[in-house]
Write a protein that binds this DNA or RNA. Structure first.
Lengths: 172, 172
DNA sequence: ATAAATAGTTGGTGCTTCACATACGATCCC
DNA sequence: GGGATCGTATGTGAAGCACCAACTATTTAT
């Protein structure tokens, strides 16, 4: 599945991009399988995939405004509100008013949130082992680094500027 | 974003898996960004992300039964029916009764389907360039190979057996 | 001082993508 | 003949969103 059979379907004479392969369908497919496999370990922790992504961003990126989080996750602000309401009601994050601009909240992981995220990641070892089972450990590490490069690299744009610009936890 | 800040949130003393990092949230995040970026080029072609994944499987894997396709895509058979109805109505696939078992359909890409898939992949070059823009071309190739290994490797299980077992286009 | 803009919230509609269930017809196997 | 299989149609329900309007509180510009 997904392996090239001599590109039988490649009818066009027009040359493709230098990298003819498309990672898009593969990303979709693997993300879906990972999600399916993860649900059974996330539900006991009261978490859903969206929660996990948000918690990961907050742990790795530190406190952030809701707008910055919306931008990072490419989600509408009103949907971020609902997502954060879920996490706040579970005491996994807290919102505090920014002393610099009291319209704004700074959203941060709580100790419980960090712990829960850690538990989730431990629990997800089995999902990763299954979904990425064909890869050697060094290949999994390489995959992780490439995915992270791709994920963080593109925020070295206006998104990163917004994030840096609004982050109140920086010593200023 | 997603880069490690000294694992500040890593409270547990219990050692994680040998690869401490989780690719799951990154796969989710990148798949979502790829999907968002892809929609504007897929809609003019009358395609949605699910269509693209299915067409890719059919091109790369050749003719297959609906059951095998359902298994490969980890989807319920009744939802595969709807998906294939869409593609059939656009003349991108055709269903033919298997001569070996007339309960079963063999689903294959049509010439139009192969062409449309190719057009979609050309059009998606811009999405890949944007979402994977932080990676060098050789890194994109490496990412593709790892994703494909992960995607195809885990089907060397009962899924692959089902696929091989039910594929009527093999010389038997 | 006032108006405009911003950050966040609430409540809502609507769409897509599924899981899952039931019932059915046609076909295959025992 | 009966049970199992393959696929189809129809349906419900949930999750994950986009998008909208209206609102409060706060900041910024005039």
């Amino acid at each position: 599945m997904f392996h090239q059979l001599g590109r039988l379907g490649h009818m066009s004479a027009a040359p493709l991009d230098s990298s003819e392969h498309r990672s898009g369908p593969l990303l979709d497919h693997l993300a879906r399988r990972m999600r399916l496999r993860s649900e059974s370990v996330l539900s006991p922790l009261g978490l859903r995939p969206r929660h996990l992504v948000a918690l990961t961003v907050l742990r790795d990126g530190g406190g952030t405004s809701q707008q910055a989080l919306a931008s990072t996750l490419a989600m509408d602000g009103t949907n971020i509100v609902g997502l954060l309401n879920d996490l706040e009601s579970m005491q996994l994050i807290e919102r505090r008013r920014s002393p610099e601009d009291r319209r704004r909240h700074v959203v941060e992981l709580t100790d419980d949130g960090a712990k829960r995220l850690n538990e989730a990641e431990c629990a997800l070892a089995s999902a990763e082992n299954e979904v990425l089972g064909a890869l050697e450990p060094d290949e999994r590490e390489k995959l992780y680094l490439l995915l992270r490069r791709a994920a963080t690299g593109t925020t070295i744009t206006c998104e990163a500027v917004i994030l840096e610009d609004t982050s109140p936890v920086d010593s200023r």
